[in-house]
Design a protein around this nucleic acid. Sequence first.
DNA 1: GCGCCGATTTGCT
DNA 2: GCAAATCGGCGCG
Length: 217
Amino acid sequence: MQVWFRVAIQAKYNKMQKLQSDFYRREDVVQIARELIGKLLISRLSGQTVVARIVETEAYAGAADAASHAYRNRRTKRTEVLFAAGGTSYVYLCYGMHYLFNVVTGREGIPDAVLIRGVEPIEGGGKLSAGKGRQPGAGPAMVSRLMGITLEQNGWNLVGNKLYLAEEKDTELPVAVSPRIGVDYAGGAAKWLYRLYVPDHPHVTPHKLNRKGIVLV
DNA sequence: GCGCCGATTTGCT
DNA sequence: GCAAATCGGCGCG
C-alpha cells in the first residue's frame, strides 16, 4: 500500500462532516462525481457500521444522456426516484443479480445521478471478502455488497443516519477520467469522459480503460 | 494476463 | 423476446 493511502486512512474520523443537501443539489453532475472521489460512504444497516472511501464514480446526465435510465426524461416505476431532489439514493437490480448504488443529484425533476463504482473499505465489512483476485469494494456490485445495500435502500434520503456520505478535510487524491464502463450501447455518449477514478488504486474496477485514463491536474 | 461466456431476473419494446 | 450501468470461472498461452 502506498504512503498517501495510509496517511489518508489515519486522518479518518478527525474532521469528518456529513454532506448536506446543497452539495447534491447543484447542476453539474460531472463536477459532483469528481468531488465525490475521496469522500466517505457510511452505512449503518442491520446493526453493522461500514465506512469506506469512494475511489471511483460515474456521472449519468439524465435526460440528455443515452446511457442514463432516464434518457429523454423516461419515467417508469424504476426511474421515478431519479427525478427526486439531489441527496436521494437510487438502487437498482442489474443483470438480474447485482445491486448498483447511485446518488441522485440536481434539483427535483432533473434525473441526474452518480454511480458509485469503487470504494476502499476503512472500517467494518472486514469479514466479507470479495471473489478471489478482486479487492472488496472494487466494482459497483461489490460496493453494494460491502455496504449491505439492497433495493430496500432505494429512494432513501442520504442526509440521514443510516446511509450517508461525509467529507474529511485535508484529504486529496489524484483523479483520472475515462469513458464509462459497460455503456457501449449509448452511441456518442459512450465516449463521454464521465468516469472518474483514482489512478492505480487497488479498489478501482479492474478494466482496460484504466490504462487509457487521463490524469487531471 | 487476457478474452469469452454463463448466471439470473427485471424492465421495457 | 431481448438486452442489460456485472462478476467470476474457465481456457488459452
